[in-house]
Design a protein around this nucleic acid. Structure first.
Lengths: 149, 149
DNA sequence: CTACTTGCAAATGCTTTGCAGGAGA
DNA sequence: TCTCCTGCAAAGCATTTGCAAGTAG
């Protein structure tokens, strides 16, 4: 019996969170999670359809809704193109994105912890002035990726 | 003959930029610009339809495409709701947004100049490592607005 | 006159849903 | 068995587009 690797632990977490909302961790859902893990960057529905040809789009959409409800997947909006999905930050850690304005490619980046603290500090000050309660932030960089230059 | 106010200068700029791409500054387009100016925050197509009932949606969409092409309007994507539009930053100045996760309301905020420089610096360092050419950034704060608490 | 603008209606295209059969516990 | 999951086809909706008439220069 093999020891549990990172991926196995992740699957355990996903299964547990799905069960919390009376949902099951079925093959289709696991295939999506595996895809998100291996991709290492946000993927679109088109990406999923391409990599999982046997999974009907309607099922993919439904799975993604359920996985979001379970708190393991997050829907993001790149520039103004296609909706993309990634593992929730509580599984991958807080990070940001580089968005290619030409091809739409999305790359994950992690900023220095000290910088993130400065961001939160600056945000909370301004939010207070608006009586706005900040929950999280997202910092996206728009530009041209290596392949499009 | 009255002196030109801010709004008049803005309209002159819009007209000039439209002419550059062989487009005319017609009544419908001006109505949209006026709306964006007075709103002081990003507006959705639904907002436009509500405030400009006589303007057909198809025309609104087309105007917004043209105004973007002219570089006076920018399309933004709030959380994962409706597409919204605002005047381009070269007309309003660089700023960011507070996004209410409950009602979708978008509020403009301006961060300290020094902070923006730090952001750009942190970004350019990471972008270099990825051979990514940064053009701009967007920093959105997700949370709950005053009215929804 | 020539080119851009508009409205309406029809077409798109992504996403959601109704249903009926299948599967997990 | 009872509840959740799947697929397919149909429905929804925001957005785009074809066309023909209107208008700016």
């Amino acid at each position: 019996m093999p020891a549990h690797g990172m991926a196995d632990e992740l699957h355990d977490v996903v299964e547990h969170r799905l069960r919390r909302i009376d949902q099951r961790y079925t093959a289709g859902r696991r295939a999506i999670i595996d895809l998100l893990v291996s991709a290492e960057h946000p993927v679109s529905i088109a990406d999923i359809a391409e990599r999982l040809p046997s999974l009907p789009r309607s099922s993919a959409y439904r799975h993604l809704v359920d996985l979001q409800a379970a708190g393991v997947v997050r829907r993001i909006t790149a520039n103004d193109e296609f909706t993309r999905f990634e593992l929730d930050e509580n599984l991958t850690g807080h990070h940001h994105h580089l968005l290619c304005v030409n091809c739409g490619k999305v790359t994950d980046i992690t900023l220095p912890a000290g910088f993130e603290q400065d961001v939160d500090k600056a945000i909370s000050q301004l939010a207070d002035a608006e009586s706005f309660e900040p929950l999280s932030h997202r910092l996206d960089v728009l530009g041209v990726c290596a392949g499009c230059q």
